[in-house]
């Protein structure tokens, strides 16, 4: 198993009343697999992802359970231990393409940043070459020109591609996609999903795809986890979940997908 999560609980203590956002969640992810986490806002799906990425705040948070990434414990790891795994083996893309790129830095610089940290022996020319390859890998037209541009010169879909390129540059084994398509047009959404599918096949990279869009999840994922109010409600293969949902919350979610026949 690439990733194993056991009894993960997250509680925030920054207000008067402790707030439990994830409760006893366990699941695992095999190498090269695409796993979807679905659930409404506030269901704890993003927090689970943040915990895997080691991006939870360090104070006012109580974390329980274990997160094993290739056998290494991540949840309670020190910053130094995390740094070795992070970036090199785990990449992340976020929901909002407007804020996920640094507005004052050129695209090329941002894509190369992981290389500067994890491959310090690489020459400037090699880095540039790798970055441009990564940009063309995510199907950006004119990667040499995109390399020199600033984020505000690109459209939302292009920025999301740049994000994927910079998350992929060290060829991570796991890509966490936290609602990567939510802020995009429907047509662009499909392109991004197809791109993720292709990269998953070509690079043998596992994807943790977080979304509230069931139709996209159905299209992309091998297995699906349904979360609600911090609890893991149901998990199974995409087919099982969609054809034979066991829990009533899952049924409600599936019924909520707009269909033509229902409207008529």
């Amino acid at each position: 198993m690439l990733l194993e999560i056991k009894d993960l609980s997250i509680e925030f203590h920054d207000h008067d009343v402790p707030e439990r956002v994830v409760h006893d969640v366990s699941f695992s992810l095999a190498e090269g697999e695409i796993l979807g986490i679905v659930g409404e806002s506030g269901s704890g799906k993003s927090m689970t992802a943040m915990a895997i990425a080691g991006l939870l705040k360090r104070h006012d948070v109580e974390k329980k359970g274990t997160i094993l990434f290739e056998g290494t414990e991540l949840l309670h790891a020190s910053r130094a231990q995390l740094r070795k795994v992070q970036g090199n083996d785990i990449g992340i893309i976020f929901q909002e393409p407007m804020t996920s790129l640094n507005p004052v830095k050129r695209i090329g610089w941002q894509v190369e940043e992981s290389l500067r940290i994890h491959r310090p022996d690489m020459s400037k020319e090699e880095r540039r070459h790798r970055a441009i390859t990564a940009l063309s890998d995510v199907e950006l037209p004119n990667p040499e020109q995109v390399y020199k541009k600033y984020p505000h010169e690109l459209s939302g879909g292009m920025r999301q591609r740049v994000m994927i390129a910079s998350a992929m540059i060290c060829e991570p084994k796991l890509l966490i996609a936290d609602e990567p398509t939510t802020a995009l047009d429907v047509t662009i959404q499909l392109q991004i999903v197809k791109l993720l599918q292709r990269l998953n096949k070509e690079k043998k990279m596992a994807v943790l795809f977080i979304s509230h869009d069931l139709s996209l999840v159905k299209r992309l994922c091998d297995r699906i986890i349904v979360m609600h109010n911090g609890d893991l409600v149901e998990q199974g293969s995409a087919q099982e979940i969609f054809e034979n949902p066991k829990e009533c919350y899952t049924k409600e979610l599936i019924d909520a997908i707009p269909r033509l026949e229902k409207l008529v």
Partner: peptide
Amino acid sequence: MDYVKSAQLAGVGRLRIIFVHILPN
């Protein structure tokens, strides 16, 4: 900001995040 989070995940050191990633903003 998400770009700070992704820099953190990329393993960028804290001083570098502060002075190279955030300060120019």
